[in-house]
């Protein structure tokens, strides 16, 4: 039980008694059970803190060993031969970022449109179903998306990739060398296992997550402002563009970044789809790319002690990037009107 000890107040008997300006000192002395509870939960917090801190510290320490060996070459080398001290993340990081960018640029328009559709346009009876469906899709394991990407998308994306390469080949990242669009007998395998295929796979994987966060933000746009827009004669799109979108901007940015973080760190869906090359590959439609997590999945087994710390350095670089993305997202989302409530 609480026993609250209150410092004795100065006896205020007369009206002209001196009043002590200092606030009362309130001390709470807890019972034994309560002290055990507080101590126990602090201990848990400390335990979680030390586990998480140990992971970060261990990663950083092991990574330093590898980083010290190659220095700044770590950022510019494309090869991965840690046993002869020639390794770097130039290739894998380029691949990771390209895959994530493809994923985000495909998924964000789809996710935003779907989120707006669910929160503004869908009939009421459909809405609850769609909300549950999106949340369910966000929980589908990534290996399922990888399976789909490997068995279905690899084959059927060739047409789209060839179309893009033919008509948009003048944009550098869409250019595919070694593919002649006018030759109908040319091998199509140059268009498979590319960053584009992996990006599309990951796009479908992260779109439900983004959609869920954005819908949450859109649906919280205040009814008064919506009705105000309608009262001023706005159409539904007028209302959406002048009330819902500005209100939900934080949620949109937060959701986009959340999806970007997931896309950067995704392992298995990417690993199943791509064919790994250790060179900087800018052309997203062309076969062969790489990612940091695929590199770890490929090389962990035969890594020596030093090779493992090189992998840890790559993992640490990925972690730092994801961390920056996540913190940027939460900072932007928390500053906006809608984003304060939206979370993973």
């Amino acid at each position: 039980m609480h026993a609250t000890n209150i410092a004795p107040e100065p006896a205020a008997q007369g009206t002209d008694a001196p009043v002590d300006p200092r606030p009362r000192v309130i001390r709470a002395s807890s019972a034994l059970a309560d002290r055990i509870f507080r101590g126990g939960s602090r201990l848990t917090g400390l335990l979680v803190f030390s586990i998480m801190g140990a992971i970060g510290l261990f990663l950083a320490l092991r990574a330093t060993e590898a980083l010290r060996a190659v220095g700044l070459d770590f950022l510019t080398t494309a090869e991965w031969q840690p046993d002869v001290h020639r390794f770097g993340i130039a290739a894998v990081l380029t691949g990771t970022v390209l895959i994530a960018l493809v994923a985000v640029s495909v998924s964000v328009p789809l996710a935003t449109g779907t989120a707006l559709f669910i929160s503004e346009i869908a009939p009421t009876w459909l809405r609850q179903w769609l909300v549950s469906l999106v949340d369910l899709m966000a929980a589908v394991p990534s290996v399922v998306y990888g399976l789909w990407g490997l068995v279905f998308l690899e084959g059927s994306v060739i047409g789209l990739a060839r179309w893009l390469a033919t008509w948009f080949g003048w944009i550098p990242i869409f250019r595919v060398e070694g593919a002649d669009p006018t030759d109908p007998l040319a091998s199509a395998s140059v268009f498979t296992a590319s960053a584009f295929v992996a990006g599309l796979t990951v796009a479908l994987m992260v779109a439900p997550i983004q959609c869920s966060v954005m819908r949450e933000a859109f649906s919280q746009a205040p009814a008064g402002e919506r009705e105000g827009a309608y009262a001023l004669g706005a159409t539904r799109w007028g209302m959406i563009s002048s009330v819902v979108l500005p209100f939900g901007r934080g949620g949109m940015i937060g959701g986009t970044m959340l999806g970007l973080g997931r896309a950067l760190g995704e392992t298995i869906a990417v690993y199943m789809v791509i064919s790994q090359v250790f060179e900087i590959q800018w052309h997203i439609l062309r076969v062969g790319t790489n990612s940091v997590s695929s590199l770890i999945a490929l090389r962990y087994g035969d890594a020596s002690g030093f090779g493992l710390s090189a992998l840890m350095a790559a993992g640490l670089a990925l972690f730092v990037i994801t961390l920056v993305v996540n913190f940027t997202a939460s900072t932007i989302a928390n500053r906006s009107r809608s984003g304060a409530q939206s979370e993973v």
């Binding site: 400390l46 770890i296 972690f319 961390l323």
Partner: peptide, 26 residues
Amino acid sequence: GSTLVRTIVEAMTALPSIVAGLFIYA
């Protein structure tokens, strides 16, 4: 301490799953 714990927990949600696996493996 709770702010510190909350910050590090939030940071760890960004940990790529393969890095978690790599940590346990190592």
